[in-house]
Design a protein around this nucleic acid. Structure first.
Lengths: 122, 122
DNA sequence: CAGGATCCTGGCGGATACTG
DNA sequence: CAGTATCCGCCAGGATCCTG
Protein backbone atom coordinates (compact mmCIF):
# COMPACT_ATOMS: atom_id res chain seq x y z
CA UNK A 1 0.00 0.00 0.00
CA UNK A 2 1.28 3.48 -0.81
CA UNK A 3 1.21 6.08 1.90
CA UNK A 4 -2.44 6.99 1.70
CA UNK A 5 -2.09 8.46 5.19
CA UNK A 6 -5.57 7.45 6.27
CA UNK A 7 -5.71 9.92 9.12
CA UNK A 8 -7.85 9.10 12.12
CA UNK A 9 -8.63 5.43 12.16
CA UNK A 10 -9.19 3.98 15.60
CA UNK A 11 -8.64 0.28 15.75
CA UNK A 12 -9.94 -0.83 19.14
CA UNK A 13 -7.15 -3.34 19.50
CA UNK A 14 -4.28 -1.27 18.26
CA UNK A 15 -5.51 2.01 19.59
CA UNK A 16 -3.71 3.54 22.54
CA UNK A 17 -3.05 1.50 25.67
CA UNK A 18 -6.26 2.85 27.12
CA UNK A 19 -8.20 0.10 25.40
CA UNK A 20 -6.30 -2.50 27.39
CA UNK A 21 -6.89 -0.57 30.56
CA UNK A 22 -10.58 -0.34 29.84
CA UNK A 23 -10.70 -4.03 29.18
CA UNK A 24 -9.18 -4.53 32.60
CA UNK A 25 -11.39 -2.24 34.61
CA UNK A 26 -14.41 -2.78 32.42
CA UNK A 27 -15.11 -6.25 33.65
CA UNK A 28 -17.48 -6.77 36.50
CA UNK A 29 -15.00 -7.49 39.27
CA UNK A 30 -11.67 -5.73 38.89
CA UNK A 31 -12.75 -2.40 40.28
CA UNK A 32 -14.65 -4.01 43.13
CA UNK A 33 -11.60 -5.98 44.14
CA UNK A 34 -9.36 -2.95 43.96
CA UNK A 35 -11.90 -1.14 46.09
CA UNK A 36 -11.77 -3.83 48.73
CA UNK A 37 -7.98 -3.95 48.67
CA UNK A 38 -7.91 -0.21 49.19
CA UNK A 39 -8.53 -1.00 52.85
CA UNK A 40 -5.29 -2.95 53.08
CA UNK A 41 -4.09 -6.53 52.55
CA UNK A 42 -6.87 -9.09 52.50
CA UNK A 43 -7.15 -12.84 52.43
CA UNK A 44 -8.88 -14.69 49.64
CA UNK A 45 -11.91 -15.53 51.72
CA UNK A 46 -12.17 -12.02 53.10
CA UNK A 47 -12.34 -10.55 49.64
CA UNK A 48 -14.77 -13.23 48.65
CA UNK A 49 -17.06 -12.42 51.54
CA UNK A 50 -16.96 -8.71 50.93
CA UNK A 51 -17.95 -8.93 47.29
CA UNK A 52 -21.44 -10.19 46.98
CA UNK A 53 -22.07 -12.63 44.19
CA UNK A 54 -18.52 -13.28 43.03
CA UNK A 55 -17.63 -16.89 42.31
CA UNK A 56 -14.34 -18.41 43.43
CA UNK A 57 -13.49 -18.90 39.82
CA UNK A 58 -13.88 -15.25 38.96
CA UNK A 59 -12.15 -14.10 42.10
CA UNK A 60 -9.19 -16.35 41.43
CA UNK A 61 -9.09 -15.45 37.79
CA UNK A 62 -9.33 -11.72 38.34
CA UNK A 63 -6.75 -11.77 41.11
CA UNK A 64 -4.40 -13.71 38.85
CA UNK A 65 -4.82 -11.15 36.11
CA UNK A 66 -4.26 -8.30 38.50
CA UNK A 67 -1.16 -10.03 39.76
CA UNK A 68 0.10 -10.66 36.25
CA UNK A 69 -0.43 -6.99 35.46
CA UNK A 70 1.59 -6.03 38.50
CA UNK A 71 -1.30 -4.24 40.14
CA UNK A 72 -1.66 -6.65 43.03
CA UNK A 73 0.86 -8.66 44.99
CA UNK A 74 0.21 -12.14 46.28
CA UNK A 75 1.88 -13.35 49.44
CA UNK A 76 1.74 -16.95 50.56
CA UNK A 77 2.44 -17.67 54.21
CA UNK A 78 3.94 -21.15 54.57
CA UNK A 79 1.37 -22.36 57.06
CA UNK A 80 -1.22 -25.02 57.26
CA UNK A 81 -3.98 -24.32 56.62
CA UNK A 82 -2.88 -22.11 53.75
CA UNK A 83 -2.83 -18.37 54.24
CA UNK A 84 -2.63 -16.06 51.24
CA UNK A 85 -2.80 -12.32 51.25
CA UNK A 86 -3.48 -9.96 48.42
CA UNK A 87 -2.40 -6.37 48.46
CA UNK A 88 -2.33 -3.46 46.06
CA UNK A 89 1.13 -2.93 44.65
CA UNK A 90 2.59 0.53 44.37
CA UNK A 91 1.58 0.51 40.74
CA UNK A 92 -1.88 -0.60 41.71
CA UNK A 93 -2.22 2.26 44.13
CA UNK A 94 -1.45 4.77 41.39
CA UNK A 95 -4.66 3.61 39.79
CA UNK A 96 -6.74 4.59 42.79
CA UNK A 97 -6.95 8.26 41.97
CA UNK A 98 -8.06 7.90 38.35
CA UNK A 99 -10.69 5.47 39.56
CA UNK A 100 -11.76 7.86 42.27
CA UNK A 101 -12.19 10.57 39.66
CA UNK A 102 -14.31 8.27 37.57
CA UNK A 103 -16.38 7.36 40.58
CA UNK A 104 -16.78 11.03 41.36
CA UNK A 105 -18.07 11.67 37.87
CA UNK A 106 -20.55 8.87 38.33
CA UNK A 107 -21.74 10.21 41.65
CA UNK A 108 -22.05 13.70 40.26
CA UNK A 109 -23.81 12.84 37.04
CA UNK A 110 -25.50 9.50 37.23
CA UNK A 111 -28.75 11.06 38.30
CA UNK A 112 -28.73 13.06 35.10
CA UNK A 113 -28.05 9.88 33.21
CA UNK A 114 -30.89 8.16 35.03
CA UNK A 115 -33.19 11.06 34.23
CA UNK A 116 -32.24 10.95 30.57
CA UNK A 117 -32.82 7.24 30.57
CA UNK A 118 -36.34 7.40 31.95
CA UNK A 119 -37.08 10.34 29.65
CA UNK A 120 -35.92 8.24 26.74
CA UNK A 121 -38.05 5.35 27.87
CA UNK A 122 -41.14 7.57 27.73
CA UNK B 1 -33.99 -8.87 59.83
CA UNK B 2 -32.55 -7.18 62.91
CA UNK B 3 -29.90 -4.59 62.36
CA UNK B 4 -26.94 -6.90 61.95
CA UNK B 5 -25.11 -4.03 60.26
CA UNK B 6 -23.18 -6.23 57.86
CA UNK B 7 -20.50 -3.69 57.20
CA UNK B 8 -18.70 -3.65 53.90
CA UNK B 9 -20.49 -5.79 51.38
CA UNK B 10 -20.11 -4.67 47.80
CA UNK B 11 -22.87 -5.86 45.58
CA UNK B 12 -21.72 -5.11 42.04
CA UNK B 13 -25.23 -4.24 40.99
CA UNK B 14 -26.27 -2.17 43.93
CA UNK B 15 -22.89 -0.70 44.64
CA UNK B 16 -22.37 2.95 43.78
CA UNK B 17 -23.38 4.27 40.39
CA UNK B 18 -19.83 3.73 39.25
CA UNK B 19 -20.70 0.17 38.36
CA UNK B 20 -23.17 1.38 35.77
CA UNK B 21 -20.65 3.80 34.41
CA UNK B 22 -18.05 1.08 34.14
CA UNK B 23 -20.52 -1.11 32.33
CA UNK B 24 -21.01 1.72 29.87
CA UNK B 25 -17.41 2.53 29.18
CA UNK B 26 -16.25 -1.03 29.63
CA UNK B 27 -17.70 -2.24 26.39
CA UNK B 28 -15.61 -2.30 23.28
CA UNK B 29 -16.98 0.74 21.49
CA UNK B 30 -18.31 3.46 23.76
CA UNK B 31 -15.02 5.13 24.50
CA UNK B 32 -13.91 4.92 20.91
CA UNK B 33 -17.08 6.63 19.76
CA UNK B 34 -16.76 9.33 22.37
CA UNK B 35 -13.20 9.82 21.24
CA UNK B 36 -14.30 10.32 17.65
CA UNK B 37 -17.10 12.68 18.67
CA UNK B 38 -14.59 14.71 20.60
CA UNK B 39 -13.64 16.22 17.24
CA UNK B 40 -17.13 17.60 16.76
CA UNK B 41 -20.43 16.45 15.26
CA UNK B 42 -20.15 13.49 12.96
CA UNK B 43 -22.38 11.58 10.61
CA UNK B 44 -23.10 7.91 11.04
CA UNK B 45 -20.91 6.86 8.16
CA UNK B 46 -18.08 9.11 9.27
CA UNK B 47 -17.97 7.51 12.67
CA UNK B 48 -18.23 4.13 11.08
CA UNK B 49 -15.28 4.79 8.82
CA UNK B 50 -13.12 6.13 11.63
CA UNK B 51 -13.58 3.15 13.89
CA UNK B 52 -11.96 0.13 12.41
CA UNK B 53 -13.88 -3.08 12.72
CA UNK B 54 -17.14 -1.80 14.12
CA UNK B 55 -20.30 -3.26 12.65
CA UNK B 56 -23.34 -1.13 11.82
CA UNK B 57 -25.23 -3.06 14.41
CA UNK B 58 -22.86 -2.20 17.21
CA UNK B 59 -22.47 1.39 16.06
CA UNK B 60 -26.21 1.88 15.99
CA UNK B 61 -26.71 0.08 19.26
CA UNK B 62 -23.98 1.96 21.08
CA UNK B 63 -25.10 5.30 19.72
CA UNK B 64 -28.65 4.54 20.82
CA UNK B 65 -27.46 3.73 24.33
CA UNK B 66 -25.35 6.86 24.48
CA UNK B 67 -28.33 8.84 23.32
CA UNK B 68 -30.61 7.22 25.88
CA UNK B 69 -28.08 8.05 28.57
CA UNK B 70 -28.08 11.65 27.47
CA UNK B 71 -24.41 11.61 26.57
CA UNK B 72 -24.90 12.08 22.86
CA UNK B 73 -27.46 14.01 20.87
CA UNK B 74 -28.87 12.81 17.58
CA UNK B 75 -29.96 15.30 14.97
CA UNK B 76 -31.86 14.29 11.86
CA UNK B 77 -31.82 16.68 8.92
CA UNK B 78 -35.02 16.32 6.90
CA UNK B 79 -33.27 15.68 3.63
CA UNK B 80 -33.09 12.96 1.12
CA UNK B 81 -30.84 11.09 1.25
CA UNK B 82 -31.02 11.02 5.05
CA UNK B 83 -28.52 13.00 7.02
CA UNK B 84 -28.00 12.33 10.72
CA UNK B 85 -25.46 13.89 12.99
CA UNK B 86 -24.25 12.75 16.36
CA UNK B 87 -22.69 15.08 18.85
CA UNK B 88 -21.54 14.95 22.43
CA UNK B 89 -24.05 16.56 24.74
CA UNK B 90 -22.95 18.90 27.46
CA UNK B 91 -23.23 16.01 29.87
CA UNK B 92 -21.20 13.86 27.51
CA UNK B 93 -18.46 16.44 27.38
CA UNK B 94 -18.15 16.39 31.17
CA UNK B 95 -17.03 12.81 30.78
CA UNK B 96 -14.10 13.76 28.60
CA UNK B 97 -11.82 14.81 31.41
CA UNK B 98 -12.22 11.70 33.57
CA UNK B 99 -11.57 9.65 30.46
CA UNK B 100 -8.54 11.74 29.62
CA UNK B 101 -7.20 11.12 33.11
CA UNK B 102 -7.69 7.42 32.68
CA UNK B 103 -5.99 7.54 29.32
CA UNK B 104 -3.14 9.46 30.90
CA UNK B 105 -2.75 6.76 33.52
CA UNK B 106 -2.63 4.18 30.78
CA UNK B 107 -0.02 6.08 28.82
CA UNK B 108 2.07 6.62 31.93
CA UNK B 109 1.90 3.12 33.32
CA UNK B 110 1.00 0.61 30.67
CA UNK B 111 4.64 -0.08 29.94
CA UNK B 112 5.04 -1.13 33.55
CA UNK B 113 1.99 -3.31 33.18
CA UNK B 114 3.40 -4.79 30.01
CA UNK B 115 6.70 -5.44 31.75
CA UNK B 116 4.94 -7.11 34.67
CA UNK B 117 2.99 -9.18 32.22
CA UNK B 118 6.00 -10.51 30.33
CA UNK B 119 7.79 -11.08 33.63
CA UNK B 120 4.79 -13.09 34.82
CA UNK B 121 4.79 -15.05 31.60
CA UNK B 122 8.38 -16.12 32.22
C1' DC C 1 -8.29 -22.22 53.40
C1' DA C 2 -7.18 -21.42 48.74
C1' DG C 3 -7.89 -22.82 44.50
C1' DG C 4 -7.76 -26.28 40.29
C1' DA C 5 -10.77 -28.80 36.75
C1' DT C 6 -15.19 -29.30 34.28
C1' DC C 7 -19.49 -28.58 32.51
C1' DC C 8 -22.89 -25.54 30.76
C1' DT C 9 -25.52 -21.41 29.55
C1' DG C 10 -26.74 -16.29 28.28
C1' DG C 11 -25.99 -12.90 25.70
C1' DC C 12 -22.39 -9.90 23.33
C1' DG C 13 -21.32 -8.99 19.10
C1' DG C 14 -20.21 -10.23 14.02
C1' DA C 15 -22.18 -11.28 9.20
C1' DT C 16 -25.52 -10.85 6.03
C1' DA C 17 -29.72 -9.31 3.82
C1' DC C 18 -33.28 -5.97 3.37
C1' DT C 19 -35.72 -0.98 3.56
C1' DG C 20 -37.41 4.14 3.61
C1' DC D 1 -27.40 7.23 3.79
C1' DA D 2 -28.82 5.38 7.87
C1' DG D 3 -30.53 2.32 9.56
C1' DT D 4 -33.68 -2.57 10.84
C1' DA D 5 -34.12 -7.63 11.10
C1' DT D 6 -32.33 -12.18 11.58
C1' DC D 7 -29.32 -15.83 12.35
C1' DC D 8 -25.48 -17.68 14.78
C1' DG D 9 -20.77 -18.54 16.88
C1' DC D 10 -18.22 -17.75 20.79
C1' DC D 11 -16.68 -17.32 25.28
C1' DA D 12 -17.19 -14.77 29.81
C1' DG D 13 -18.56 -16.30 33.68
C1' DG D 14 -21.62 -19.11 37.07
C1' DA D 15 -22.33 -23.76 39.41
C1' DT D 16 -20.42 -27.69 41.02
C1' DC D 17 -17.09 -31.04 42.49
C1' DC D 18 -12.52 -32.09 43.98
C1' DT D 19 -7.56 -31.47 46.28
C1' DG D 20 -3.01 -30.11 48.87
Amino acid sequence: MPTTTAPEIYDPYRVCPSRQLLDRIGDRWTVLIIGVLEDGPQRFSQISRRIDGISQKMLTQTLRSLEADGLVTRTVFPEVPPHVEYELSELGRTLLEPLAILRAWAVDHMDEVAAARTAAAA
